[in-house]
Simulated scan of single mutants.
Amino acid sequence: MKVALYAPFKPLDHPAPSGDRTIGRELAAALAEQGLEVVVPTRFRSRWLSARPLSWLAALAARREALGAARREGVAAFLTYHTYYKSPDVVGPYVARTLGIPYVIFQGIYSTKPRRRLATRLGFELNRRALLAARAVFTNRRLDAANLGRLLPCERIIPVRPGIDPALFAFDAAARRELRQAWGVGEAPVVVTAAMFRDDVKSESLAYLFRCLGALAREGLAFFLAVAGDGPMREPLAALAARELPGRHLFLGLVAREALGAVYGAGDLFAFPGIRESLGMVYLEAQAAGLPVVALADGGVPEVVEPGITGLLTPPGDAGAYRQALRALLVDKARRRDMGEAASLYVRAEHDSGRNYGAVAAVLRRLAGRA
């Protein structure tokens, strides 16, 4: 069975790494594992479509392109990944309606705030229409499920836990020894963090972490920080790290996802505050590699970390509590080991993308059989 998979926010082959791209790729891989053939009907990006009238002609062209591809390939269902008011799906409902095939959304997001502003009202309405057209809407966040319940009947909302392929981040003892030797860290506990250095909450979180670790360094705690990532805020972040953590940090640059498992495995704990983090796939990746997490109980973080079992989550805005959580794991090797083991088991049991996203394939088959 062939399924059209469309990502209006960002094509899954986009060169810029992000959590959104990771989730989309995991979804596509899981569908393929379940025996579905994925067809990309168009790569059109609808980001801020409502504010760019010149892109409306491109949207019409994308509709024709997607319809032609879906008809030519004989797809039995149309699946859209991630639609919301900034990037509404204006392609999928049209194609599915024209061909008489089921339309399904994975990670549909609904919020009524955008309808109150002129600049976002059109995007809100386009997204609302897409959600209403869907036979089923999968959601990987509890908050999103609650918001969707204000628009859709509960039987059309299907919660699914976010997932990754845990095997990609399996612990490798040889790689750990090699990297730690290259970093020159000896027996000191290594804190690993990973993020894109964007001028937003990602950089805010890294700065928050650097300052908290700097305070612990001045207390005399022994540790080393390894930072994976890159982006436009690298220079100010590097300057801050040099002031707060002189001689005890290393910027690794952009690390390919297939190499991240070794980086996590070379560490002893994963720390990224996650200020207003929508979900945070890095937490799942680090836990799969056997690292306990230290983060804020903010946004979607509590949905991918078991507080007190696989990591320590602290109240947003309480830097003192965050420092204390870091300190607690830095000084307690046995606790780090126990939480790290629990983290690895937790991801494999609760967040395996092949298992979790397999439910999407089952629903697509069922709906296509009814079409």
Rank of each mutant, 00 (worst) to 15 (best):
A77E: 07
V95P: 02
A76E: 15
A76W: 01
G92D: 11
A61D: 10
V95T: 12
T80F: 08
V91A: 02
L49Q: 08
T83L: 08
L79H: 14
A61M: 10
Y85F: 15
W48R: 14
G68M: 04
A58W: 10
E65I: 01
H82K: 13
R43Y: 00
A51N: 09
S46W: 01
G100V: 11
G68H: 09
P93W: 13
S46F: 01
V75M: 07
A76Q: 15
P41W: 03
R43P: 00
G74Q: 09
A59C: 07
R64W: 07
Y81C: 01
A69N: 02
R45K: 12
S46N: 05
R47Y: 15
Y85H: 15
V91Y: 05
R97F: 01
A70D: 03
A69F: 01
A77Y: 06
L57D: 06
W56G: 02
R64K: 11
L60T: 08
A61Q: 13
T98A: 15
Y84T: 04
L57G: 07
A77R: 11
E73M: 06
I101H: 05
W56L: 15
A59T: 09
L49F: 02
L54S: 13
Y81E: 02
T42I: 01
R64D: 02
R71D: 01
A66R: 08
H82L: 14
D89V: 03
Y85R: 06
L54R: 14
R45P: 00
R63K: 15
W56I: 04
